[in-house]
């Protein structure tokens, strides 16, 4: 059994989810409440990973963080290692790839909070930031849970982007989904079957718990 691959997959999914919540909440807040005319452009960019083939996304990420890009060079000077084919590089790729899965449920939750409640909070002297934490966020908990679960599950199952950006280094970038591909290539159907089954099991349990807890998940899973 590919325990190291599972460990890596789960670790990557957890860290990605954490980063996505930190990045996604302010972004979703801005998308929900901004009145900027060109907001739709940002919305389109955030949704791009939903429709792009993972190879295309992976290719551009590879270029963007590679040793010839400013980002890649800066990282190399600071950290002393390259971003591609490392866990950190994989993390960046996963965050971008799963961004819409975190942002869309959050936007939909934030926008459905009754505007009157937000105004009532303002009129009671509470700042916009505090209103977010005291009214909008607590009333958006189902959306936050959905965003968390979808980010986690989607990262757990990613394949193309990981392959493009991370390659296939055991213990560093070989996730469970890539291990399955490896096994099939080597005609090790039994090992592939075991790993696949565990992945199905984990995903099912996570989703079942979520549905059971709140019985309401935004239907944005595109395939």
């Amino acid at each position: 059994m590919d325990w190291r691959a599972f460990e890596l997959s789960v670790r990557l999914a957890l860290v990605t989810t954490l980063v996505l919540l930190i990045v996604g909440v302010p972004l979703a807040y801005w998308l929900s409440f901004s009145r900027w005319r060109l907001k739709f452009l940002v919305e389109a960019i955030v949704a791009l990973p939903l429709v792009l083939p993972p190879t295309v996304l992976g290719f551009y990420i590879l270029l963007a963080i590679g040793p010839h890009s400013p980002v890649g060079q800066l990282y190399e000077t600071l950290a002393g290692q390259m971003l591609p084919f490392s866990f950190q590089g994989l993390l960046i790729a996963s965050v971008l790839y799963s961004l819409p899965f975190a942002v869309q449920p959050l936007v939909s939750a934030f926008s459905s909070v009754d505007r009157k409640l937000i105004e009532a909070s303002w009129a009671l002297g509470v700042s916009q930031l505090k209103t977010f934490f005291r009214v909008i966020l607590p009333l958006s908990m189902p959306g936050v849970i959905t965003a968390t679960v979808l980010s986690f599950a989607h990262t757990l199952g990613e394949f193309g982007v990981v392959l493009m950006v991370g390659g296939n280094i055991e213990g560093v970038t070989r996730t469970a989904s890539i291990a399955i591909y490896d096994h099939v290539q080597a005609l090790e159907y039994e090992a592939a079957g075991q790993t696949a089954l565990v992945l199905v099991g984990i995903s099912f349990v996570v989703l079942a718990i979520t549905y059971g807890v709140q019985r309401r998940i935004w239907a944005i899973w595109p395939w």
Binding site: D114, K116, L117, E119, A120, S121, A123, V135, L139
Partner: peptide, 12 residues
């Protein structure tokens, strides 16, 4: 002090 028409109490 603002009283909204439907009162807008915080449900949580």
């Amino acid at each position: 002090g603002y009283l909204f028409q439907e009162y807008a109490l915080f449900p949580h």
